Simulated scan of single mutants.
Amino acid sequence: MEEPIFPTTWEIPTDYTIQKCRIGFKGGDFKVYDAYGYLVYRIQGRSFSTSPRRVATLLDAAGNALITSVHLVDGWQGFRGYSWEPNDLLFSAQKISYSTFKTELEICVSSENLGDQKQKFILKGSPFQRSCTIYLGDSIVAQANPLYKLKKFIYSRNKFRLTLYPGNDHALVLAMLITFFGGN
């Protein structure tokens, strides 16, 4: 029996490419591709004409709802699936600071699964430039950056990269990123 070339205990960062599908004022849909170009997730954005609520839902490749982020008066909240019920609450988000070039967001994960401990993530970056770093304490959880091309001074905001470091829930991090970019 041969030994594997790469140990199974190696944990390496995962790269995703996120691309906006519809371009325009009402466009809020994104597709998330893995490093091989396969569709992994979809992000479906919508707003309601009867209220100022904005909603973004993270779907898997098959179209099953994983997490729905809802913009409320006092911030964003993330729920399991398509639910908006309080018992399905996963996280809540509040802006710590906001300026034209830099935004800071604090996300508290629901403590139901974690005992009495609440995890607090801090997201720092620029939603306009599609750049963001997600922190949990002193460690970096993920980073989003625009895709730069050599010899090109202007880059597209419709396509960017997310590098997610090992040991983190991919769907939760993508939902936090939706909240960061959709909240402005």
Score class of each variant (00 low, 15 high):
residue 1 M to F: 14
residue 2 E to N: 14
residue 3 E to R: 12
residue 5 I to P: 15
residue 7 P to V: 03
residue 7 P to I: 00
residue 9 T to V: 06
residue 11 E to N: 14
residue 12 I to Q: 09
residue 14 T to R: 09
residue 15 D to T: 15
residue 16 Y to S: 08
residue 17 T to N: 10
residue 17 T to Q: 11
residue 17 T to W: 03
residue 18 I to R: 04
residue 19 Q to H: 10
residue 20 K to W: 05
residue 22 R to Y: 06
residue 23 I to M: 07
residue 24 G to S: 05
residue 26 K to E: 09
residue 26 K to R: 12
residue 26 K to Y: 11
residue 27 G to D: 03
residue 28 G to A: 10
residue 29 D to V: 06
residue 30 F to W: 15
residue 32 V to H: 07
residue 33 Y to S: 02
residue 34 D to R: 12
residue 39 L to V: 09
residue 41 Y to I: 00
residue 43 I to E: 09
residue 43 I to S: 02
residue 44 Q to C: 05
residue 49 S to A: 12
residue 50 T to M: 11
residue 51 S to D: 12
residue 53 R to Y: 03
residue 54 R to W: 03
residue 56 A to I: 09
residue 56 A to T: 05
residue 60 D to F: 02
residue 60 D to S: 04
residue 63 G to V: 03
residue 65 A to T: 04
residue 65 A to N: 04
residue 68 T to M: 05
residue 70 V to M: 03
residue 72 L to G: 13
residue 72 L to A: 13
residue 73 V to N: 01
residue 73 V to I: 06
residue 73 V to E: 06
residue 77 Q to E: 00
residue 80 R to S: 13
residue 81 G to L: 01
residue 83 S to P: 08
residue 83 S to H: 07
residue 84 W to A: 15
residue 85 E to Y: 09
residue 86 P to W: 04
residue 87 N to G: 08
residue 87 N to T: 12
residue 88 D to S: 10
residue 88 D to E: 02
residue 88 D to G: 05
residue 88 D to N: 14
residue 89 L to E: 11
residue 91 F to G: 02
residue 94 Q to E: 10
residue 95 K to Y: 10
residue 98 Y to Q: 07
residue 99 S to Q: 05
residue 100 T to M: 12
residue 102 K to E: 13
residue 102 K to N: 15
residue 103 T to N: 02
residue 104 E to A: 12
residue 106 E to W: 01
residue 107 I to G: 00
residue 110 S to P: 06
residue 111 S to T: 13
residue 112 E to W: 10
residue 112 E to F: 12
residue 119 Q to W: 07
residue 121 F to I: 02
residue 122 I to W: 02
residue 126 S to D: 15
residue 127 P to K: 13
residue 130 R to G: 05
residue 132 C to Q: 10
residue 132 C to F: 10
residue 134 I to W: 06
residue 135 Y to A: 02
residue 136 L to A: 04
residue 137 G to Q: 08
residue 139 S to W: 05
residue 140 I to H: 12
residue 140 I to Y: 09
residue 141 V to N: 04
residue 142 A to W: 01
residue 142 A to Y: 01
residue 143 Q to Y: 00
residue 147 L to V: 08
residue 148 Y to A: 11
residue 151 K to H: 12
residue 153 F to T: 07
residue 154 I to P: 06
residue 157 R to P: 04
residue 159 K to D: 02
residue 159 K to L: 09
residue 159 K to W: 01
residue 160 F to H: 14
residue 160 F to K: 14
residue 161 R to V: 02
residue 162 L to K: 12
residue 165 Y to M: 03
residue 170 H to Q: 15
residue 170 H to G: 05
residue 171 A to W: 00
residue 172 L to C: 11
residue 172 L to H: 09
residue 174 L to K: 04
residue 175 A to P: 00
residue 175 A to M: 01
residue 177 L to P: 07
residue 177 L to H: 02
residue 179 T to C: 02
residue 181 F to K: 07
residue 184 N to K: 13
